[in-house]
Design a protein around this nucleic acid. Structure first.
Lengths: 131, 131
DNA sequence: ATGCGTGCAAACGATTTGCAGAGAA
DNA sequence: TTCTCTGCAAATCGTTTGCACGCAT
């Protein structure tokens, strides 16, 4: 079991998924990404989208957060992930990082070495009707 | 659409699920909870476990957090969800709430009313081999 | 007795995987 | 040409739901 590095060929689909993920300014579901790709003209299979997305997560170029009914993906950014997500329209806004120090310190206190953290704040933005 | 309060009869299963959820000192999956119930002698159906769990979430007595491959439940606590998850063994530890004030203030500044927030900190706990 | 709650199994929706063909190196 | 990547569709897996019966009220 050698730490063989998987071959990585360049394909249009690979690039398409990567580009669309980056274009999506925030988290996006695999299905949604697939749909956008279609609309855009790139006929990429859903399975490929998933495979590509997972590959990106594996190599650390993307992050996945689980949500009820599936998961959302996002192009990786360094450091933690901090977003303000409107539960209604799905708009995600970046927010400034909070007490990163605090997080690390707390984790270490529990004997855990922090590798990454995600802060998701859900709410309803002003543009959306109040239910 | 009246705020009709659903009937709530007392049943052994209902109590069992509730008790087991409370007994679980942390997050637990529906399947795991179901298994424990079985081991304990309570023959509760998996569907019922789900129904009960969802009901508890609905009335705010439990919280569900989505994880890859499903969701985890936990007896409700006030405030947001904060845990420290070991990426290796999956152990989740509660951590004290950070700057809740900061979060709310930041959100409001963007015109967003916060409904809930989740802070996920990933790392590797001391009990797990360093890769 | 009446109607909610339960159990079973089928239904569902998201994600994964097997296999044969297409394209990158 | 060789071998990885893709597409399609079937297979999985967690979760939900329809239906008939039992039990709490």
């Amino acid at each position: 079991m050698s730490a063989t590095i998987r071959e990585r060929r360049n394909t249009a689909q690979k690039e398409a998924v990567c580009r669309e993920l980056t274009a999506a300014d925030g988290f996006i579901s695999a299905g949604e990404l697939h749909q956008r790709l279609r609309d855009e003209g790139s006929a990429v299979g859903l399975a490929t989208v998933y495979r590509q997305l997972n590959a990106l997560v594996d190599i650390g170029r993307a992050d996945a957060i689980p949500v009820p009914g599936g998961q959302l993906f996002r192009a990786c950014e360094q450091g933690g992930h901090h977003h303000l997500v409107c539960e209604d329209c799905g708009t995600a806004v970046d927010i400034d990082p909070p007490d990163e120090e605090w997080i690390r310190a707390t984790a270490e206190r529990s004997g855990v070495t922090v590798t990454r953290h995600i802060l998701e704040v859900f709410g309803r933005c002003g543009a959306c009707p109040a239910e």
